[in-house]
Amino acid sequence: MKNPIPRLILLVPFAFLAACAATAPTKTAATLHGDPAHPATTAGWVRTELYFGTGPADDAASGVDETRWREFLDREVSTRFPDGLSVYDIYGQWRDKGAAKPERLRSKVILLLYPDTPEHRADVEAIRAAWKRVTGDQSVLRVTQPADVSF
């Protein structure tokens, strides 16, 4: 009688692949049909990230504290984008023009998804201008790219 082990070794990978195919995730349909703020599919939407320096990374006592940040978020951002946004705490580096080395910063990133309209673009610029006015910062980095969004 032949040894059945070599044949069994060949069958194991096929059984594994079949199990993976049977449990592969399927694309689900959007559930919020008809809601303009949360469309089933989008056209002409963008994703914008705004980067805000909140203070030196090695000095938690200076810069913008969490209370002041939330006041800014409530007053300047949430009023312009009330349907939702995301905020991330990050660490960043920025080198001022002419500086020998970058400064290390505590930072926040706001992620916005919205229809690309002149009004929304103006809202983003108003947020950037407000932060510079409130903090005296030179800039708020903006990154905008097309977004395929579904809710």
Results as ranks from 00 to 15, higher is better:
T135Q: 07
R128L: 06
P115H: 05
G44E: 02
D59Y: 02
P146M: 07
F81H: 04
P82T: 06
R106G: 07
L105D: 11
L141P: 04
R128M: 11
A129M: 13
G55N: 02
P146L: 00
A43I: 04
R104F: 13
L141T: 02
I127N: 03
L111V: 14
A57N: 05
A99F: 08
W131T: 05
K97W: 12
D58C: 00
D35W: 02
A122K: 14
D137P: 01
A122V: 06
G53S: 11
E76R: 07
A130G: 09
F151Y: 15
R95E: 10
W131M: 09
E76I: 00
A100S: 11
D116C: 12
E71F: 10
A37S: 13
F52R: 04
A43C: 02
L111M: 12
A57W: 11
L105C: 08
L113Y: 15
D96K: 12
L111K: 09
A99Q: 15
D74V: 13
P115K: 04
E119L: 10
P56N: 11
D137S: 10
T117F: 06
G84Y: 00
D35N: 13
F81K: 04
P115G: 04
L112C: 04
Y51N: 08
R95K: 14
P39G: 07
R121M: 08
R128P: 01
D58Y: 09
E125W: 03
T54C: 04
S139P: 00
D83N: 12
A37D: 14
R104M: 05
F52L: 13
W131P: 09
R70V: 04
E49I: 02
A61D: 09
L141W: 10
A129Y: 01
L113T: 10
A99M: 10
W94N: 03
A100T: 12
T67Q: 15
R142V: 11
Q138R: 13
E66Q: 14
R47T: 08
P56V: 02
H38P: 01
F151E: 03
R133H: 13
V143C: 05
A43P: 01
W45Y: 13
H120L: 00
F151A: 08
P102A: 14
L50T: 05
S107T: 08
T41D: 07
R68N: 09
P82K: 11
F81C: 02
G92L: 04
A129I: 02
L85V: 06
K132S: 12
E125M: 10
Y88I: 05
W131L: 05
G44W: 00
L113S: 10
T42M: 00
G98V: 07
D59Q: 14
Q93V: 09
D35P: 01
G53W: 04
T67R: 14
V140H: 00
G63D: 06
R75H: 11
A40I: 01
D123L: 00
K101M: 01
A129T: 12
T135F: 09
F81A: 01
V109M: 15
Q145G: 13
S62Q: 12
